[in-house]
Simulated scan of single mutants.
Amino acid sequence: MTLEAVLASLHLLAILTLVVFVTSQAALCRSEWMNAAVVQRLARLDAIYGIVAVLLLLTGLARLFWGVKGLAGYTGSPLFHLKMTLFVVGALLSIKPTLAFRRWKRALDASGQLPSEGAIAQTRRWVMWQAHVIPVIAVVAIFWARGM
């Protein structure tokens, strides 16, 4: 049971950390606040977000293979598959902002150019979609954990 508690704690810690970084991106990605420091920070936050997403996946896989329920206990549930599908959707939604943040940083480093208001607004929409998928995953997990 100690291993299960450790794995669950690490998984929860990764989820909460992911929420912190996507929320930080959403808060900073605004045209009225955009400056060189924000572009640098968004690129750094996104890199950390990516690392945390990988850690979330790894802690989830650890629970899948070494957790109390075992592989069959997880994969037999349709809500598990919904949760994984939503995770993939969230990962796919993160690609466009990641590419934008990298492009903005390259342009800033090369010429000091900041992103346009349109680019910022579009990227913020993608970040917000990611931020809204995460709570849905949590709700699915709650129902799934209660055997529904």
Rank of each mutant, 00 (worst) to 15 (best):
F21L: 13
D46G: 02
V19T: 12
R41W: 07
H11C: 11
I51G: 13
A62Q: 05
Y74L: 01
T17D: 00
M34P: 07
A62V: 03
A62L: 12
G90D: 14
P78N: 08
L56P: 05
H81R: 02
F87H: 06
I51M: 12
L13D: 02
L10V: 07
P78C: 07
A37N: 14
F21C: 08
P78D: 07
A14P: 11
V89W: 00
S77P: 06
A8V: 14
H81I: 00
S77Y: 02
G67S: 10
R63S: 11
V39D: 11
L42E: 10
V89Y: 01
V38Q: 04
E32C: 05
W33E: 12
L16G: 03
A37Y: 04
I48D: 06
Q40H: 06
N35S: 11
A26N: 09
P78L: 12
L79H: 04
L82R: 01
F80G: 06
S24Y: 03
V20N: 04
L56M: 13
A72T: 07
H11M: 00
S9N: 07
V88H: 02
W66K: 02
A37T: 11
V38T: 12
S31V: 02
L12P: 03
L45C: 08
E32Q: 12
Y49H: 14
A27G: 05
L61H: 06
L82K: 01
I51Y: 03
R63W: 06
W33R: 15
G60P: 11
G73D: 01
A36C: 03
F87M: 09
V22M: 09
I15C: 06
V52Y: 04
G90L: 15
M84D: 07
K83C: 02
A36I: 01
V39N: 10
A36T: 06
V88K: 03
L55V: 14
S9D: 01
N35V: 04
Y49R: 10
A8K: 13
A62S: 14
S9Y: 03
T23W: 05
H11K: 04
R30L: 13
V54Q: 02
V39R: 00
S31H: 14
L86Y: 08
L64A: 03
C29N: 12
G70E: 09
Q25P: 02
T75W: 01
V54A: 13
Y74A: 04
S24R: 11
W33S: 14
G70M: 09
T23S: 15
A37P: 04
G90T: 14
T75M: 09
E32Y: 11
L42T: 10
V54K: 07
Q40K: 13
V20S: 13
G60W: 07
G60Q: 10
R30N: 09
R63Q: 14
V88P: 00
V22L: 10
I48Y: 05
L56W: 10
N35P: 01
V54Y: 06
T75D: 00
L13G: 12
A72P: 01
L13R: 03
H11F: 12
S24G: 15
K69T: 07
G50T: 01
A47P: 00
V19W: 08
S31E: 12
V68S: 14
L16Y: 06
G73V: 02
L28W: 09
Q40N: 10
R63N: 15
G73I: 01
L71V: 13
G73C: 01
A43D: 14
C29Y: 01
L10R: 05
P78V: 12
D46M: 00
A36E: 13
L79A: 05
